[in-house]
Amino acid sequence: MPCDFLFIQAYDNVVLAKVTKERLLDPSSITALGEALTQILDRYPRISLVLDLADVGYMSSAVLGKLIATHKQVKALKGRMCLAGTRPVLLPLFKVTNLDKVFEMYPEAEFAMRQYRSKPL
């Protein structure tokens, strides 16, 4: 199933991936998101990835699993990754699972992009 809710903009090896779906609860959508993120890494191996979650209001634990999988792939490829725009309602999910200690998080994608572009890998 193609992922029609992930929009990619690349600036050299700094990639902004914006999730435009509010409810990330459907298993087929979650699988599609994971596959789309893997495809991005295939295309940009040493990536600086900003994943914009500003539109996301709900996400299940399965999404956290996909984010972890992506994080591990990025690290293995000597890249970097951050989450941006995570809504306050979702922050407890990261805190109770201790993933707030794993992911670099920025309040806005634009700010994260500036940070990454100002400090190339």
């Binding site: 972890i68 109770v96 699972t97 201790n98």
Partner: peptide, 21 residues
Amino acid sequence: DQENPDALLLEHGRGVRIMAS
């Protein structure tokens, strides 16, 4: 156990913890 650093990067097993919180 999400308090176990070795488990932190596993890709499954967080649903119960989220509910329990």
